[in-house]
Amino acid sequence: MKPVVPTLIIILCFAATRSFAQAKTADTTVKPPVQLKTVNIVRYNFFKDSAAFREEYSKEMTFRRPKWFEVYKITAVDINKLYRVTQFKKNKKKIAFKHMLLDKEQEMYVNSVYTPSLVNKVTRLDGDSLRLFMQYYRPEYSFIKNASDYDIYAEIKKYYGAFIKTRDSVPSQP
């Protein structure tokens, strides 16, 4: 009786694996390809983004600290304005935030003009060297605002000459 039990177990295991393998191969049917959604790429428009930025932060961008003479009316004192005038810390933070927003807007403008594709077109740099060049030789907002395309190209070429001379001494991280 003892030799029959191991033989039966082996036969049952073989039958189970065989039926499992047959069932597994029956499930492998060709599935239709997955259809991906269409992606529309929209060109970056600084002026549209700047208008949206100014609209979003309109209250902070137009902040002006009330003046002391505005507190007094002909016969009375405006308590609300007096309260706003005397909040020195809060007014200072609001003014600092306004300046930060203006700096961010200027940075966005420089980024919209001084692009990697423009620098690549003028200097033929790419990869890490392009990133380093753009990081270390970034023009100021006042220059970009008042410069023509030719002036920007000439400035990039001048910066590129300096970059080539000091390429080996420029560290990879600022």
Rank of each mutant, 00 (worst) to 15 (best):
R167F: 06
K81N: 04
Y160V: 03
K67R: 11
I10C: 10
V5W: 13
M134V: 10
F97N: 03
A51V: 01
N146Y: 06
Q173P: 00
L8I: 10
W68K: 11
E105P: 05
R84I: 00
I74D: 15
F133V: 13
K31I: 14
K81V: 07
A23S: 13
L82F: 08
R64L: 13
F14S: 07
L130C: 03
Q106T: 01
R54C: 12
L130W: 02
D168W: 11
A76L: 08
T62D: 09
M108F: 03
N91C: 13
P171A: 07
L101Q: 01
K73R: 11
I95K: 00
N80G: 08
Y136T: 04
D27C: 14
A16I: 08
Q173D: 10
V42K: 06
V5H: 11
R18S: 08
V4P: 02
T7H: 10
K104G: 12
P3F: 05
A23K: 14
D149H: 07
K145L: 13
D27S: 15
N91H: 13
R124H: 07
R64E: 13
G161S: 14
S112A: 09
E140S: 11
P32A: 13
K89E: 11
N146C: 07
R65K: 13
K90G: 05
A23I: 03
T38K: 14
Y141M: 09
T75H: 09
E107A: 15
D103Y: 05
K59F: 07
A147V: 03
P174G: 07
Y141N: 06
K73W: 03
V119S: 00
Q135R: 08
S19G: 13
G161C: 07
K145A: 06
T38G: 07
T29K: 14
Q22C: 05
F163L: 14
N111G: 02
R64H: 13
K165F: 00
F69P: 05
T29N: 11
V34E: 02
V30T: 12
I152V: 05
S129Y: 06
A76V: 08
N111V: 04
Y44L: 06
P3W: 04
D168C: 10
S169Q: 15
P66H: 08
L36Q: 12
R138S: 07
L125A: 05
L12T: 14
N40G: 01
F143D: 06
R64S: 13
Y83V: 07
V122G: 01
E70W: 10
M108Q: 03
A51S: 08
E56C: 10
A26Y: 09
G161N: 14
Y150S: 08
S112C: 00
R138P: 02
